[in-house]
Amino acid sequence: MVEIAEIAVSAAELKLGTEPVQGDGVRLSHADPKARYSLRARDAKVLAAVIGRALPGKIGDTDGGIACLGPDEWYALLPAGTDLPRVEGLPASVVDVSSRALGLVLEGPGALAVLSSGCPLDLAKMGVGRATRTVFETVEIVVWREAEDRWHVEVWRSFATWLWNAFLAVMPHAK
């Protein structure tokens, strides 16, 4: 009978870092606090009128902190404290999800390699200012290319510890 040792490191012991981590050519940090809204409507004009902001028209485009994630879905990532009105009586939905996700930021020339280690998209071809929902290995994320070497990654709160540590595991080797 083969005896396999106890798992040396338990997932329970993973910690979500609080301070930025600087690696070779890549820096991992938390994004500034944000107000987050899930915005839904069949007709973008109805929604735009309610919230008083322009909405990007095509999936993957962003405009003024709002990304178009689906044909009837937008995701607003706005400065903390921004209040969007709750819709009533109109064919649209505005839901405050500020607490649902955390934002992690990867920046530097090595950021693309860190993200590509677990994200199956051809991120090198993703334009600056584009955003999309996708996965990092098994975890759903929203990737937002804020600049050539700066990627904002939205992840649901309870997956953030795993993702933070998965990034840390790759950072020393990603080139």
Partner: peptide
């Protein structure tokens, strides 16, 4: 990387 602590996410 999916071994030990990173095997799969543990949600808390």
């Amino acid at each position: 990387h999916h071994k030990e602590a990173l095997f799969q996410p543990l949600r808390k």
